[in-house]
């Protein structure tokens, strides 16, 4: 399974990663090799095998509907790259 440059760029875009020209080929080779490695799975017959999402096959526990958190905005926004009157700032989002 080898990927062409456009596929690599498409995946990068999907992952919101920017790959510079010079490293594209390296990513291309590495990703292709990794896919070759995992493609061994295709040979396995798994008909009727229930996919396993968790080792324990346990079930979801429920939380009581109570408010346990209080306002810590100042504390949390101290570590934010850019804020203004309580909002996180980003370049204009067009809709």
């Amino acid at each position: 399974m080898s990927l062409d440059t456009n596929q690599v760029l498409a995946i990068a875009d999907l992952s919101r990663l920017q790959i510079d020209e010079k490293s594209i080929t390296e990513f291309q080779t590495n990703l292709s090799n990794i896919l070759d490695l995992v493609d061994q799975l295709q040979a396995v017959d798994t008909t009727g095998v229930e996919p396993m999402a968790h080792p324990m096959d346990a079930v979801q526990r429920l939380r009581a509907d109570v408010v346990t958190e209080d306002n810590k905005r100042e504390k949390f926004q101290k570590i934010a790259p850019s804020t203004a009157d309580g909002h996180y700032l980003v370049p204009k989002v067009v809709e």
């Binding site: 203004a84 009157d85 309580g86 909002h87 996180y88 700032l89 980003v90 370049p91 204009k92 989002v93």
Partner: peptide, 10 residues
């Protein structure tokens, strides 16, 4: 109100 930027309220 965020001079050209968008403000995010979560």
């Amino acid at each position: 109100g965020f001079d050209g930027q968008s403000g995010i309220d979560l």
